[in-house]
Design a protein around this nucleic acid. Structure first.
Lengths: 213, 213
DNA sequence: CCTACCGATCGGTAGG
DNA sequence: CCTACCGATCGGTAGG
């Protein structure tokens, strides 16, 4: 029942004392991400996270001084990971849109990531939520990136007539977010939502040529 | 600081004792809806809801025996109200899509309703959440209704070639849900998301003729 | 990293 | 509808 999913512990021991601390930090972040995704930030308890890591909750507070600091670290690591995985290759126009479909396909294989984003973004809708500004800023950036990709596609003559990048960028973002809710609710069902297929179908309605080569 | 928004109390007194109880029930439901929308079901406390109504929390439990019963009543009333307002007129094809835009426009004037739906649906993504089945069922019905409207539009020759109702029904639902998150996060900002305009622009990409007459 | 504790808050019940 | 209470749980601190 451990929340750890990606911390490699097999093989050799960590060489120094600091490495053990770093591993413990990662384990805590993995577990916190999972619980925040399951029940949200507010309802998640430090004691539950600590218990899943096999330590006491003051032990957890040794690594992260407050609950908010833990939330911040979880969000920061999320950004760092996605930056590392997708930020380096910044494609142009329809190539960027194709990459978007691949990101969604990758997300479909990692429910924890989707849960966290879906639950926290809705919770952070409250103006006094500690992650409110984080998500507000994040959506501004995401919409701007998408609007640029759509404008590039228009320059290349790949955008359908009458499709305004400024209007449709928020719609594409909405499609990705909305599909996640349906997919999470459908997980147990017989026919879960096919997120990448639905997103590609949506993008194709904006383009002159189908996205998939 | 009362959560009551739509309970008429001016003028004459309620004629009987039962009427007073019914008014109190409505007041509790209004307040619970607001707090569930602000912080979610799990983080909302019966004491806070009761305090906003000016009663003690055992007083609240006199009207609704458990917290779950209160949640159920809030969701049931939500259904009853939207049934009363939109369920009677069941338009066909593009007429139904036009009505959808009007529903979204009406929602934009009622943040409480949007908050409740947005926050609870994300929270209910957890399989053990008391509203999980409610939302899972609700999405099945909503998608089916939309798929029917799209099929009717296709029969009338109003649907673009290559647009599959079964594929695009979940996408339209996703657009509505996703726009709500962005709109709620943008409330304080200078340029809030224009939900009905974005939805209409999306629907127009599926249709042969623009929706707005 | 631990135990032990703080004041606050939770849903629900007893009894009236 | 109330006061008073139940056992459980919360984030954070003291002190080691």
């Amino acid at each position: 029942m451990s929340g750890v999913t990606s911390t490699p512990t097999a093989g050799q021991e960590p060489p120094r004392g600091y490495a053990k601390g770093r591993l413990r930090r990662e384990e805590i972040l993995d577990t916190a991400r999972a619980l925040f995704g399951e029940v949200g930030y507010r309802s998640a308890s430090l004691r539950e996270i600590a218990a899943r890591c096999g330590i006491s909750h003051p032990g957890l507070l040794h690594h992260f001084p407050t609950k908010e600091a833990l939330l911040e670290a979880v969000l920061q690591r999320r950004d760092a990971v996605s930056e590392e995985r997708f930020g380096v290759v910044r494609a142009r126009g329809t190539e960027a849109l194709r990459a978007l479909v691949e990101i969604v396909a990758a997300n479909a294989a990692e429910p924890g990531e989707v849960e966290l984003y879906c639950v926290l973004s809705a919770e952070a809708t409250a103006p006094d939520h500690p992650a409110h500004q984080y998500f507000a800023d994040r959506y501004v950036v995401t919409r701007a990136n998408l609007e640029r990709s759509l404008r590039e596609a228009a320059e290349d003559g790949h955008l359908r007539g009458g499709v305004d990048p400024a209007v449709h960028a928020p719609v594409v973002v909405a499609v990705m977010d909305g599909l996640q809710v349906q997919w999470l609710l459908d997980r147990d069902g017989s026919t879960p939502t096919d997120m990448p297929a639905a997103l590609r179908a949506h993008l194709d309605t904006l383009l002159t040529h189908p996205l998939q080569p």
